[in-house]
Nucleic acid binder design. Structure first.
Length: 474
RNA sequence: UCUUCAGUAGCUCAGUCGGUUAGAGCACCUGACUGUUAAUCAGGGGGUCGUAGGUUCAAGUCCUACCUGAAGAGCCA
């Protein structure tokens, strides 16, 4: 800190554009700004630089007197160049902005050759920007999305902290292959070109790093339950991996998931938490990301802000799977997949309930046990389990959760019925053997939340560096 | 993984019934312009038509396979 201070003595501290534009304390002051050039335009006498430093979606206009700096010096200041500019902040003579910086000193940190720099002043398609993911954070759209992504991550921690939930770090490498949430990525240090074999000709994992097969986690839930049955209320927030060959705008091979788990919660407490959680995150975005949301609203999705407000202000509809199926059967709607009690609901069915019938978020509960995971608490009817899915317009399933089966015998029966290999999950069963308690939790896909909050249409555009089948660039 | 659509200049696209030297807008370069707002105006350069085969006198255009991307579906968060 001392070194930093001495090193910078005599030079002006950098001021962020977001601070300059949010108060009038800098007016008539000499300040220094640093950032990347969006455009430069003008004539022989005067040049205007639109400068963005990532702190806000808004640019600061820099006014440059060409006779002072010289044409040759200004030439390399093109779109994409990085500069440090010192000058006095004045009231703008032009129409498009309230203040502007009269440049008195310009330092060029890095140029961006205009013939090869891929980002132009004109618009680009999202598909093209995905191919240059190393540069797309410099665009308005992606800087807005990434600032909102940060705000939502912060709001999640703040929400749970205030509710007394502890942040539990569950493992990313797992030794169990029975989490039951999809195909897994194997983790190994064995030489794939020279695998040690057992006498039966199978891979001998005794020499692998962990002495047994391991994978990247598909969910932190099972470990989360261990935390909840000790600390009371916990949540996880970390990366999750699915090796499914899913090619849709709603799936990633690597995504971030939030999984709260709470002891002494039943499914109703769980629904209350999920609804309050989502609403408060959306309110946080409306309150703290107004500039970025305004931009996304005008650029990509004219109904975005109205939709966010509507969801934040209205109650979610709650109904059972059985009631939902009745509505679908009596709807008169022709579905590609016919509906009957016991079938898993297809996208078209969920969309009908959310977007046509209720026109608001829906929480569906008490699904047939056959179509849900082994750990969900069985209802007295013997047919359904205490599952809950939160269905959102445009997104579909944004949250999946349940009250967990806390009875040792019933859980073991279910595991045996489904032939789940539980040899690696003995520790999970012991929570029901020693001091078991009713508990519940859910999983929220962070990028699915961001799809909804930003109005973006493709999940690859709400994470900085998407991982999808056949794509691990950057 | 299945179905459908797409791939032509740096970007976004047009290219008719298969027919001469493949076009436009933007970007870029050069010039003009005394305050611009994705500045404007004039001129200029820029192409392995996704890849590999095939049909044909002739293929950007038709056929086959593959690659890549997108949308919908499945799986799910």
């Amino acid at each position: 800190m001392l070194c930093y201070f001495i090193k910078n003595m005599g030079t002006l501290q950098r001021t962020k554009i977001v601070e300059i534009l949010s108060s009038d304390t800098f007016l008539s002051q000499q300040i220094n700004v640093r950032g990347w050039v969006r455009t430069r335009r003008g004539n022989k006498q005067i040049s205007f630089i639109a400068l963005n430093d990532g702190s806000t979606i808004k640019n600061l206009q820099i006014v440059v007197d060409i006779t002072t700096f010289g044409d040759e010096f200004l030439k390399p200041i093109t779109t994409g160049a990085c500069v440090s500019i010192t000058g006095v902040l004045v009231v703008s003579q032009g129409q498009g902005q309230t203040v502007e910086l009269q440049a008195s000193d310009i330092q060029i940190y890095g140029t961006a050759d205009a013939e090869t720099y891929p980002l132009q002043k004109k618009g680009h398609t999202l598909e093209f920007l995905r191919e240059i993911a190393h540069l797309r954070p410099r665009t308005n759209t992606f800087s807005a999305v990434l600032r909102i992504r940060h705000a939502m991550a912060f709001a999640i921690h703040q929400y749970f902290n205030e509710k007394g939930f502890f942040y539990l770090h569950t493992p990313i490498i797992t030794g169990s292959d029975a989490e039951g949430a999809g195909a897994m990525f194997q983790v190994t240090t064995l030489d794939l070109n020279d695998m040690p074999k057992t006498t039966e000709g199978k891979v001998n994992y005794e020499n692998d790093f962990f002495g047994k097969p391991t994978n990247l986690t598909v969910s932190g839930q099972l470990e989360g339950e261990l935390g909840a049955l000790a600390l009371g209320n916990i949540y996880t927030f970390g990366p999750t991996f699915r090796a499914e060959n899913s090619n849709t705008p709603r799936h990633l091979a690597e995504f971030w998931m939030i999984e709260p788990e709470a002891a002494f919660y039943d499914i109703y407490d769980n629904m209350d938490l999920a609804e309050d959680f989502l609403k408060s995150l959306i309110r946080y975005a409306l309150d703290h990301c107004a500039d970025d949301l305004d931009f996304l609203n005008s650029m990509w999705d004219k109904e975005l802000i109205d939709r966010l407000k509507f969801v934040a202000e209205n109650d979610f509809v709650r109904l059972s799977y059985t009631e939902g199926v009745d509505i679908l059967i009596n709807s008169g709607e022709k579905f590609e997949f016919p509906v009957s009690w016991g079938v898993d609901l297809q996208s078209e069915h969920e969309r009908y309930l959310v977007e046509k019938h209720f026109k608001k978020p829906v929480i569906l509960t008490d699904y047939p046990k056959e179509i849900k995971a082994f750990y969900m608490k069985q209802n007295e009817d013997g047919k359904t389990v205490r599952a809950m899915d939160v269905l959102f317009p445009r997104i579909g399933e944004i949250i999946g959760g349940s009250q967990r089966e806390d009875n040792y015998d019933r859980l073991l029966d279910r595991i045996n019925e489904l032939n789940i290999p539980m040899k690696d999950l003995w520790w999970y069963l012991e929570t029901r053997k020693f001091g078991t308690a009713p508990h519940a939790g859910f999983g929220l896909g962070f990028e699915r939340l961001l799809l909804f909050v930003t109005g973006m249409g493709n999940i690859r555009d709400v994470i900085p560096f998407p991982r999808t089948p056949k794509n691990a660039e950057f």
